[in-house]
Amino acid sequence: MKKVRDNFLFRMWLMLSALIVLALVGFIIGYIVLNGMKSISLDFLLSHPKGIPLGAEGGILPAIVGSLLLTLIACASASVLALATAVYVSFYCQSRQLETVVHVIVQCMAGVPSIVVGLFGYTFLVAKLNLGRSLLSAGLTLGVMIFPFIEVRAEKSLREFNRAILQSSYALGVSKVYTLLKLVLPQCKADIVAAVTLAGGFAMGAAAPIILTGAVIFAPIPRSLSSPVMALPFHLYILTGEGISLEKAYATALVLMVLIFAINIVSIALTFRRKEVGR
């Protein structure tokens, strides 16, 4: 009897938790989509914020552009460095100790909370280097934040490459670089691009690191790297935090989520394609 009851309770637990998770996903997405749809329009997407207080009317074009630019800078700066590091550790590094040191450093950095990264960006980039609150400072800060993520994933993908095949390539007298470019990268490309896009999604949604380093309440579409920017997550924060306009906030949240999902879908599609081609 007791056994039957335990089993029943156990199953209830599993069912309930899964139901809760699914309900949460449904609720969150439904809530944003339904509410956001009401106040979204082409005009909202393509015009500048207006009204008093600023943002109560008008659109979010500068924030969309700003977020895209920030993501681009973050991805570009982080991926070049992270890929080089991953390639070095998995292909060139001869000593185990050095490898461990690199891993420890990367893990340390991965453990730094994003707000502390922002703090660093604020003090060092904005103040000490005098870059000011700008597209560049904020983009680089985001880059520091996503570096470990890209490095870890890229390294994992490179290491999973079949060692016997590598050795067959070296055995032909072919250099490491040629092997890397012609054999390894084509295989790992999808994984690496997926890692970068996923990291881009994080960067785009992150508000904490850019509050202090570049995001402002209002700015036109940035003309140069040193201009301050508007960004979707920060704009959303201001719209709600200051109680400026609920409708605009819903719409902004929807735009932000759609952008990030688009990025994630690209990344998932890439991962899938790799699996199909792979084996």
């Binding site: 095949i165 050795q167 067959s168 032909l172 007298g173 250099s175 295989q187």
Partner: peptide, 19 residues
């Protein structure tokens, strides 16, 4: 590299490149 070019090897397990 020169040695490897002039002395080829075929391993025990076949290792075709994924190309």
């Amino acid at each position: 590299e020169e040695v490897r070019k002039r002395i080829g090897i075929v391993f025990q397990k076949p290792t075709p490149f994924p190309l």
